[in-house]
Design a protein around this nucleic acid. Structure first.
Length: 287
DNA sequence: CTCCAGGGATCAG
DNA sequence: CTGATCCATGGA
């Protein structure tokens, strides 16, 4: 990876990357928009300001070590998205349209522990509320990483949290699900290091042992936390946009949408889902 | 006021 | 087995 350090910034040339699209396609909740090209994010116990514009990325307020050891991996920069986009676009005008709309989307490589709790919180919830609850969790239980930001709490920091304390953070009816996840780590029903060794089907089965983790949430965890791209999470947006483009607007069960996406896109299902989600939500398809 | 949100657990038939 | 209902909370 060629990079340039200049004026306290690390600068690279990078095709197929748009920070706004990447952050606003529903995979991440810990970010703040500074302007159209500049965002502040918190991940992997670090804060970062990043600008992307005209195939140039600038990493601001970070170190060379963190750039090399954290951010290149986090932003999935070693993956060639031109191949993925070409494969999905061939013989599929819907994909062609969605990809040209969100051509700089990347699938972030996020921390599984954080992603499991994040997507339990996401169920039947709205994105601004999800962001707020995660901030509550972090500021109350996470470590301070600079004068204003807090990391997402670790298992050790959360393991003794009570349902009542979770309720104070506004996790609502999902408090008991988060507590169940922590209990399952405690009694070794869930072992995240072991989960890393599993393939898609087995991993999904293990994750769905956690209360509040069903088909959609487990697919999000597999895709965003374990970077296994067979996953095709079907939420209300994906249901609407797949019905709109592929099912002649006919009401179709979520299970069937999921089967359709997985068999149509295979190992590229997760990427296809992100392009579809971003297109659907930005253009309010089906609302 | 009602409706609903990046769903899933539980209940009713 | 499938479909309906409930769930906390807050914004529209």
């Amino acid at each position: 990876m060629d990079y340039l350090i200049k004026n306290n910034k690390i600068i690279i040339n990078q095709m197929d990357f748009n920070i706004k699209q990447t952050l606003e396609c529903g995979q991440s909740f810990r970010f703040a928009e500074i302007d159209e090209h500049t965002f502040k994010i918190i991940a992997h116990n670090k804060a970062l300001t990043i600008t992307s514009n005209n195939n140039t990325i600038e990493f601001i307020n970070t170190t060379e070590d963190d750039f090399l050891n954290i951010w290149t991996n986090y932003f999935d920069l070693q993956t060639d998205y031109s191949i993925i986009k070409n494969t999905l676009s061939s013989n599929d005008d819907v994909m062609k349209k969605c990809i040209s709309f969100g051509d700089g989307i990347r699938i972030l490589r996020q921390d599984p522990f954080e992603i499991i709790i994040t997507f339990i919180i996401s169920q039947n919830n709205r994105i601004p509320m999800i962001k707020k609850v995660i901030e509550n969790l972090s500021t109350n239980y996470g470590s301070k990483i600079n004068d204003i930001d807090y990391a997402f709490p670790t298992y050790e920091q959360l393991k003794n949290i009570t349902i009542e304390q979770l309720n104070e953070l506004k996790t609502g009816f999902r408090s008991k699900y988060i507590r169940d996840f922590l209990d399952k780590i405690e009694d070794n029903t869930i072992d995240i290091q072991y989960l890393y060794t599993l393939e898609y089907d087995e991993l999904k089965k293990e994750l769905m042992k956690i209360k509040g983790v069903g088909s959609k949430v487990s697919d999000c965890i597999i895709l965003f936390g374990f970077s296994i791209t067979n996953a095709f999470p079907v939420d209300v947006w994906i249901k609407r946009v797949v019905e709109y483009f592929y099912f002649d607007n006919q009401d179709t069960k979520k299970e069937l949408i999921e089967t359709f996406g997985k068999s149509k896109f295979n190992k590229l299902g997760g990427y296809a889902q992100q392009y579809l989600f971003y297109y659907a939500r930005e253009l309010q398809i089906g609302k």
